[in-house]
Amino acid sequence: MSAPKTTLQKTKKEIDWRELERRMEASRVAVERIWAPTAEDTRRILRERARALAREAVPAETADASIEVIEFLLAHERYAIASEYVRGVDPLEDLTPLPCTPPFVLGIVNVRGEILSVIDLKKFFDLPEKGLTDLNKVIVLESANMVFGIVADAISGVRRILRADIQLSLPTLTGIREDYLLGVTAERVVILDAEKLLTDGKLIVQEQVGG
């Protein structure tokens, strides 16, 4: 037992306590300075921002050439939905499960004083469960006569997609999903057909509990 210890002591360099102290001091100073950036840092940041602002705006595409979508993550896959049908995104809070509903109906939620039903597209699309995900965002879809929320793991943001980039269908996307898809981009973002979702009768729950 003592033999490896001695070899360890031999191979290991002796601890330079002064060096350690110096490093500790440096880190302490660095932590303190984080809140007060140096003049050079400030200048650099300001310059970057100015450069960013000075960039010429991208020439506006025509409304027909592109659609604006909201991209989100669901079950490790990227989805997008046209923003014209989106009222807003909110954190999913105080979800109340509803009894006697199909499995894809997670429950109801209060979003800014309005009671909305929340749908899990994964279950609706019969996607296989790939572990637990956050499912803590809700995207509120809205049309003239229909409002409901779909849950998402994360909201990636708003972006524009050229219609030309959308491939209409993929052989891999089969089953029920095919009906609700607009297409897939080259970056493997699945674009959902919001209009179809909002008008689909399957989402209307008309179950009755016997008795």
């Binding site: 909201i70 923003s83 989106v86 009222r87 807003g88 995104v89 909110d90 954190p91 965002k137 909201i155 943001g157 708003v158």
Partner: peptide
């Protein structure tokens, strides 16, 4: 989220 909403 707020930014997304603002964008919408």
């Amino acid at each position: 989220l707020l930014a997304v909403n603002a964008a919408i």
